[in-house]
Write a protein that binds this DNA or RNA. Sequence first.
DNA 1: TTGAAAGCGCTAACAG
DNA 2: CTGTTAGCGCTTTCAA
Lengths: 342, 342
Amino acid sequence: MTDRPQQAVRTPTLEDVARVAGVSRATVSRVINGVDTVDVALREVVREAVAATGYTPNRAARSLVTKRTGSIALVVSGAERSSEQVFGDPFFGRVTAGVVRYLRTLGIHPALLLADSDQARAQAVSFVGQGNADGALLVSIHPADPLPRLFVEQGLPAVLFARPSEPVPVSYVDLAHEAGAALAADRLASRGCRRVVSIAGPADLPAAQDRLTGFRQTMARHGHPYVPVAEGNFTVESGELAMERLLESTPDLDGVFAANDMMALGALRALRQRGRRVPDDVAVIGFDDSSPAEGARLTSVAQPIEEMAAEMARLLLRHIEDPTGPPTSVIFDPVLVTRDTA
Amino acid sequence: MTDRPQQAVRTPTLEDVARVAGVSRATVSRVINGVDTVDVALREVVREAVAATGYTPNRAARSLVTKRTGSIALVVSGAERSSEQVFGDPFFGRVTAGVVRYLRTLGIHPALLLADSDQARAQAVSFVGQGNADGALLVSIHPADPLPRLFVEQGLPAVLFARPSEPVPVSYVDLAHEAGAALAADRLASRGCRRVVSIAGPADLPAAQDRLTGFRQTMARHGHPYVPVAEGNFTVESGELAMERLLESTPDLDGVFAANDMMALGALRALRQRGRRVPDDVAVIGFDDSSPAEGARLTSVAQPIEEMAAEMARLLLRHIEDPTGPPTSVIFDPVLVTRDTA
DNA sequence: TTGAAAGCGCTAACAG
DNA sequence: CTGTTAGCGCTTTCAA
């Protein structure tokens, strides 16, 4: 038995594979990277050598020369709330799940960043800017978030979940909010509702505006040109208050479309307090299909968040691949989840 | 005006800093890495050069030679539930928040992995094994999760949230569950409860057992050697059922300690259905201080999840720094959050 | 189509 | 205490 001096347990390198395959390092590299100017026979030999050695590319070495990391950042941007709440939020949970599940099929695991202050935002930008990730997925709680613009200004690849309130030349995925509202309007109309009202969201939220617009247009098409509206701020309480105002202005109302589930839940509370039966006297539809909605058996407009999240990742990857491509947006269709309230 | 040929916008390297500072690359490297065998004056010169050039270390290059990435993996391991639910879970939300907030002070942003199948677990192990992260933070939903053992077997640095049900030589953070139960027992005793019962969690869960043991011991110390117990599975329904059984076996009960909030909520439901007033007739205490508990004004034992999460990260970093160190555990003290039910 | 060779930016012996 | 030097493992011209 002769000693084998340098036989330390070392992970195999391109050099090792090349030796086993009897070719040069360059050829192995070409095979690994799918360059098609390699002889078919050689390609196979190399493949076997890779399998035999158990070779895996060293990402640091590769990054050093390609200037790419092969990883991306998932930036959760929620200024108002505490970070515990942000990560515990079912919305972020679903977005995160969609992103993580899609990316892992590609062997990518996103770096998680929280951008909840100007400093944190700057840190997020420089994290990507310094090449720790090739691009960023931006999930903001507020559409006026300054983060998207920061990324765009630095020329860093980024994709948003939801259209920003101020125009920024950046790709995003979003829901066809008007179409969702139309679904609700159709449902209410087909139930025979004749005095329909709406509880709208904050006027500075594009999504809220789209929902209101879509609802009005579709109700008009159903022969109801005027829809009384009260504005809320997406909380249960605001929904309850709005409902009370509407009951006062339009006592004979028989259908309600709320711009989100929380406000719909508030509306339900107000309605029941006044002895109105749901859905017999008044039909109620919410938006988001959140888990409280499910619990309350609320009919609601659902968005395919996981699919949207996966598409967001796909767009980012494409952008990283070809940074010259123009910003793209992909809009998803909502679905009406019919339960007990309409 | 003369043209400057190679003046492309290039991020500064060590070489650039060295040139500006008038020293060698090695010296700059030493200053950057805090090696203290550098002349104080030179150190200052280098610092200024770094500032002047706006230099930031290239992580790929550094990794290539140090065999360290400077990043870590946060592995969320939940087999039973769908991934959406896992990430939306307030518990994971708080753990994640604690980890992310602590690590970002060090400029580290964890890679997020979901290990919800054998394949995903293997992927997580090889992700770290192939040097994409220096170690892993393991947050399992089930204490019998096979993942910790996989990491330990590969000799990869890992730290767990909560003690595994089967002994594995690995570091972890956990709560002093017995102490938490003792807090509940003390509270019940000091309210003058004389017939106290408990709704326990699954027998195969170490934490559930610790809570029961701690509760019994402390009640014994208060002169109540026997505590009737019914077992649940941490759901609201199981808590309700357990409460009904206890009301039957011990009709004159006046205090309940449930091993988690969900079961306590179920108990509340059963109690109210039977017309028992809480806390006047029966005092109820839960465990976890979850947000439903807060909503229901339930008195509950709270764990400092964010602090525990931060400590978990700290332990992992220490382990990566010194891989020879023995496994460590850090146990945190719970706090009783007194609300309306006890 | 393939190989030789240069070099990405950094750290770490090793001299001096 | 400081500089020189040799790579880390990979991709990518450039020639052959």
